[in-house]
């Protein structure tokens, strides 16, 4: 996924000299290729995210297409006001890249973990919010972000969970990507980012009769397509490596409640910070979003909502 990100960014920058990469002193090895291929389009703004995002607005006003890279804990969360006022207010074409979202930095604690970034960005007008799940979605999202005439936040989470798609994707911005659809399915799993892989595992292990959808664009979403999914299934289960409030689960509930009321189980991070230190797998378990914990939640949900 990281290679897909780097390759896409280098390809875009080589094709378009207006593309700039700004980093807040992050991305040590990740940008080797970019620095080698497009050194004049690379700006390390230092450990100064507020200024970097404000500058990106100034550069966009001058006709550039800045891609602003940081950890999701900092870009966007530390600079929400700069995104709102300097960039989104004027619909400027700046792409904000928040890497390491969710529990990627499992050993480092709360400062580097990010489970509120979607909630923080969804409510900002004009801002597109993307959340790719694998290398194919990453490439698709980079293309969407490049083509977008307004601002974009791209959430980049756990990157080494493997593919969920089998081939390169083509889809309009806002599309739901079906991974497994079957007529008459009772349950739909709707997931984003790293948790799409988990949804696939659940499909194979626990819920072979379910439909599975990936949501690479949280905003805008194809509301009709999502409403159709709600209509076609009796129970909905959302999965995200993010707080259950304000993210994908909230989005599905919002659309469902308006267009096709359904029972929704929102799998995600509850209203708490991480307590312990450990591996990524440990943290998923601590927060109850590892496969075993999710299976228990789903079993209880299904039992509580019999046909």
């Amino acid at each position: 996924m990281r290679a897909a990100f780097s390759d896409s960014l280098v390809a875009l920058a080589k094709k378009d000299p207006k593309v700039l990469l700004l980093t807040g002193d992050h991305g040590y090895a990740l940008f080797d290729a970019f620095r080698k291929e497009c050194p004049a389009q690379y700006i390390n703004a230092g450990i100064a995210e507020q200024n970097m995002v404000g500058m990106a607005a100034g550069l966009a006003r001058m006709g550039f297409k800045p891609f602003v890279y940081g950890l999701a804990a900092f870009i966007p969360v530390r600079v929400v006001e700069q995104i709102k006022l300097d960039i989104a207010h004027d619909n400027l074409p700046v792409v904000l890249l928040g890497d390491g979202a969710g529990f990627v930095y499992s050993h480092l604690g709360t400062s580097h973990q990010s489970t509120e970034d979607i909630a923080c960005t969804r409510a900002i007008p004009n801002l597109t919010v993307l959340s790719p799940a694998d290398r194919f979605e990453q490439t698709l999202c980079m293309q969407w972000a490049y083509e977008c005439t307004g601002p974009v936040y791209m959430r980049m989470g756990k990157s080494d969970r493997g593919d969920v798609h089998r081939e390169p994707l083509q889809a309009p911005l806002g599309a739901l990507l079906p991974l497994h659809e079957q007529a008459g399915a009772d349950i739909a799993l709707i997931a984003t980012g790293s948790m799409v892989k988990t949804a696939r595992e659940l499909l194979e292990k626990t819920l072979p009769g379910a439909s599975v959808y990936s949501v690479p664009a949280i905003k805008p979403i194809n509301t009709q397509a999502l409403a159709d999914v709600c209509n076609q299934h009796r129970l909905l289960i959302t999965l995200e490596e993010h707080h259950t409030d304000g993210g994908l689960g909230s989005l599905v509930c919002e659309v469902s409640s308006t267009h096709a009321p359904r029972r929704v189980l929102r799998i995600g991070v509850q209203d708490r910070f991480s307590h312990g230190c450990g591996t990524y797998a440990y943290l998923l378990k601590e927060h109850g979003i590892d496969v075993d914990s999710i299976e228990k939640q789903i079993t209880a949900f299904v039992q509580a909502n019999p046909k």
Binding site: N51, V53, G54, M55, A56, A57, G58, L59, R61, Q82
Partner: peptide, 8 residues
Amino acid sequence: SVGVGMAM
């Protein structure tokens, strides 16, 4: 900061 970006 926006101005610094414009100057850049």
